[in-house]
Simulated scan of single mutants.
Amino acid sequence: MKKNLLSTLIFSLLWMGISSAHALMIKTDPAIINPIKIGDTFKLNVDVEGVTDLGEFRFNFIYEPDVVTVTDIVFSNFLESTGRTISFETKNEEAPGILSFFASTIKGAAPGPGGNGTLLTITFQIKSLNNDFLNIEDAHLINTKGAELSASLPVGSEIIPALGNIDGKGAVTLSDAILGLRILAGIDTGTQTIMLKADVNNDNKIGIEEVVYILQYIAALR
Results as ranks from 00 to 15, higher is better:
83 G>M: 07
220 A>Q: 11
28 T>V: 05
1 M>C: 10
40 D>H: 10
81 S>L: 05
77 N>V: 01
168 G>R: 06
126 I>A: 10
33 I>V: 15
202 N>S: 14
93 E>M: 13
88 F>M: 09
81 S>R: 06
37 K>E: 10
54 L>Y: 07
112 G>H: 06
58 R>M: 12
40 D>K: 04
115 G>N: 05
144 T>I: 14
18 I>Q: 04
205 K>E: 10
220 A>R: 08
217 Y>E: 08
180 G>K: 02
77 N>A: 05
48 V>N: 01
44 L>I: 06
88 F>C: 01
140 H>I: 13
29 D>K: 11
35 P>Q: 05
55 G>E: 01
81 S>A: 06
1 M>R: 13
25 M>S: 14
65 P>K: 04
209 E>Y: 13
72 D>W: 10
95 A>N: 06
38 I>S: 07
28 T>L: 14
137 E>S: 15
152 S>K: 14
123 T>Y: 11
78 F>Y: 15
53 D>E: 06
103 A>G: 02
21 A>T: 06
143 N>H: 06
99 L>C: 01
182 R>L: 09
113 P>I: 03
28 T>W: 07
165 N>M: 02
97 G>L: 05
22 H>E: 08
84 R>L: 07
174 L>T: 08
110 A>K: 15
91 K>W: 09
126 I>S: 05
104 S>T: 06
75 F>P: 01
123 T>W: 10
33 I>Q: 07
46 V>G: 04
24 L>T: 13
162 A>E: 09
188 D>W: 09
219 A>Y: 09
127 K>G: 03
156 G>P: 08
176 D>H: 09
156 G>Y: 14
59 F>R: 01
203 D>T: 12
129 L>M: 15
80 E>W: 00
192 Q>D: 11
26 I>Y: 02
187 I>H: 07
145 K>Q: 14
105 T>C: 02
178 I>S: 06
126 I>V: 15
104 S>M: 08
137 E>K: 13
215 L>E: 09
163 L>M: 04
158 E>C: 08
45 N>G: 03
112 G>W: 03
44 L>Q: 15
77 N>H: 11
135 N>A: 11
